[in-house]
Structure formats: C-alpha cells, structure tokens
C-alpha cells in the first residue's frame, strides 16, 4: 500500500506550518509513535529551513514536499531548484563545536530519523527522509495518538 500527500511550497519561513501538517498526516497514515512523528517533523523542518536560508539565500523559491508510507517506511521527499547541495557534506560527524556553523540543524535532522538520502537529478535537489514504521502498525487510517508531531 502506498499513500502520498504532496504540497508545493515557496521557500520562506512560513512553510514550517505546512511541513508540520504534512508530517502529521504521514504520521497518522504510518501510525508512527509520537516520538517518531516529532523527529520526522523536526528533520523536515530543518531541511526545508536550510533550503530556504542557504539554498535560496532568503529569496523565494520552490520547495516540493511529498510524503507517504509503504509496508516498512514512512517517507518524505523534499525537492528544490536551488544550486546542488548535498546536506550530508555539511553536517559534522559529531555535535558541532559552535551553534553558528549552521550544521546544528542538519545534525539534528540526520540524528532523528532512520535514513537520509540525497540525489541531484534533472536540475533538482532531492532529499529523502525515512522513518521505519513500528512493527505492529497496520496500513492506512489515522489515530490521534499518532498525530502528534509537536502539536
């Protein structure tokens, strides 16, 4: 089973609420735990904020975010048209030395999810965020216990 929900954002600080709503939906579909939902939202927030601030340098730009679930994973694809940028090359291996490096958000993003992937295809950056679904999570439906990505 594969469910998707998709939004097209225009990169600015207002997109955090849209990201949160989408993650709430995906968390419900995938029956993620509260902690998983929160961490997925945090990761998506950090990635999209990084795109807006560093990819587009505060200017408006398209950010597409799409999410869904399959048998094992809840996933998000976050794509943008900014210059090629692989976040994995800008995240310290450990906790950053200072909070001003900009790597702190990416560190939090990568640490909070089960898998992160990046590719650049057809002029677009694509970030893939994966969270492993709980073993007892059936497909589909929503449950208020799981719609809790910080709300």
């Amino acid at each position: 089973m594969r469910n998707t929900d998709r939004f097209r954002l225009f990169g600015d600080h207002g997109m955090g609420a849209v990201v949160a709503d989408l993650v709430d939906t995906i968390a419900g579909m995938g029956r993620l735990s509260r902690r998983q939902a929160y961490r997925l939202r945090l990761a998506a927030d950090e990635i999209t904020t990084n795109i807006a601030e560093h990819g587009y340098h505060g200017r408006r730009g398209v950010v597409d975010i799409e999410g869904g679930v399959d048998d094992d994973w809840a996933w998000l694809h976050i794509q943008d048209n900014a210059p090629p940028f692989d976040p994995r090359g800008h995240c310290p291996g450990g906790v950053p030395e200072t909070m001003h490096e900009g790597g702190y958000g990416l560190f939090i993003a990568f640490t909070g999810i089960d898998h992160f992937a990046y590719d650049y295809f057809d002029g677009r950056n694509r970030n893939t965020l994966l969270v492993r679904r709980p073993a007892d999570a059936p497909d589909g439906g929503t449950d208020d216990r799981h719609r809790a990505a910080g709300r």
């Binding site: 955090g16 949160a20 945090l42 904020t49 909070m99 702190y104 958000g105």
Partner: peptide, 8 residues
Amino acid sequence: YMSSAGLR
C-alpha cells in the same frame, strides 16, 4: 516544539 533555531 523547538527546532535548532530555538536551541540557538
């Protein structure tokens, strides 16, 4: 909810 911006 608190992101890295809040942590900073």
